[in-house]
Design a protein around this nucleic acid. Structure first.
Lengths: 243, 243
DNA sequence: TAATCTGAGTGAACGCCGTTAACTATCGCA
DNA sequence: TGCGATAGTTAACGGCGTTCACTCAGATTA
């Protein structure tokens, strides 16, 4: 609450320097290149000193992963905020921002959205459902869907079909974000899945054999998804043409 | 060509024993638990002996990844072959087989479909486009789409729209599998992306905060995708009810 | 101001790891 | 029977995470 003491300032500075070093190693050499000894070497320290700041390497990586989540979320929120009031335009901007960050930060993407490590798994397990990084992440995308639904309800599978298949298995989602209509819950989830699949396929280089310039596939799928929503999709606004 | 000599038999036996050990370690302890020393220890050998069979740990992991690709592909082909002649039924069986294998083999899935490691990347780079494991994999899924298209063309975005967005960026895909119609190429790619996203989200535990029993979401999406295809989707045949 | 305490950092060590080099023994073949 | 290829060994190097005992400067308190 009060101003941070000198000790605290130095400490947080060192913490961020450690995480910056870890990220630099992650980016330049892949996940296996992140080592306490290398980080310490770059800082002119010895490895055991880092234990004053993180209880283990895995804890450090988990903290870094948390920061990356926040960074990506901020990027997406910034894209939304500069996209005007139209929920569809916001969704377009957010999807593009998600892909843009992921493509320019492939190793970071792999850390947060790739195969869970036993260590990171424990970190995630320590979060409540509402506090789950993915939940805070999903919330950002849900809002435009809700806005759009309240403004001009979009096309969605009949609710009884959703209910029949998914029953109350969507409860975690609906509870953590208020009483949202089941069509919105389903459409968000479907859209998020498709967005994730598209971006993960590109970042993990799983489609290079089929398509050059995965961005074109991304834009196609984005256009078709919004078209299926069936609301105000007369042509995709280009990024930056905010009329 | 001739019968394998005794030496060769012993050699391939050792090779498979090494790969089996590597897989066991992968499954029980995660990717980082796969070490030459541990494998050798389990075999009653010393680590340098493995270098008689693989030039490096990464090469061993790459070979294991190749085997896993083949195993998954065989599983999917078996599901297709026991699904009758209907291409839609085949696609359903194959998608379910893909998810089934992936969910029961999460670490293996992560190895082949997760973030590329610098080492495995080099392995994939050594494949030609048509020889790419993903390409041989995709070919299995493309065939039912082609059959279905030739039997009763399914609904797809207008070809000029696909062409406008994707242009000739689908050429790698179309060339490696004969002159397939652009609608088939697009639909396959879109379907494969959605399948991949759905399964990766489940296996990588990216959706636990939103939905319990991801299988229900999978079945919903599968039903809706086939519904969008708009051909002979009067109710989803359950697995095993092959009439 | 002087004594004390706290926390940052060091150096040595342990047991892992991949990899290389030199060496040995065994198996298959001529 | 002898020889060459092959599978395996031991020893070693450097790097890794982690622990422990230790030092020492900076903050706190009497």
């Amino acid at each position: 609450m009060t101003a941070p003491t000198r000790r605290e300032r130095l400490r947080t500075a060192t913490v961020t320097e450690i995480k910056d070093g870890a990220r630099r190693l992650l980016v330049t050499g892949g996940p296996d290149a992140v080592s306490l000894r290398a980080i310490a070497r770059d800082m002119g320290m010895t490895a055991p000193a880092i234990y004053r700041y993180f209880p283990s390497l895995e804890a450090l990586v988990a903290a870094l992963a948390g920061d990356l989540y926040d960074e990506l979320r901020s990027t997406i929120e910034a894209a939304r905020d500069s996209a005007g009031d139209d929920p569809v335009g916001q969704l377009i901007a957010m999807a593009r921002a998600f892909r843009g960050w992921s493509v320019t930060h492939p190793t970071e993407f792999g850390l947060i959205f790739g195969a869970p490590t036993p260590g990171l798994d424990a970190f995630v397990a320590g979060c409540t459902d509402a506090d789950h990084p993915g939940a805070r992440f999903g919330a950002v995308f849900i809002q435009p869907f809700l806005d759009l639904w309240h403004r001009t309800p979009f096309r969605a599978p009949p609710p009884e079909m959703i209910r029949q298949h998914l029953g109350d298995r969507l409860e975690p989602l609906r509870l953590s974000h208020g009483e949202i209509p089941i069509e919105v819950a389903y459409t968000f989830l479907s859209g998020w899945t498709r967005l994730y699949g598209l971006v993960a396929m590109e970042v993990f280089r799983q489609v290079t054999w089929a398509v050059t310039e995965p961005e074109a596939l991304f834009e196609t799928e984005l256009a078709i998804f919004l078209d299926e929503l069936g609301s105000s999709t007369q042509g995709l606004p280009q990024a930056g043409s905010g009329d």
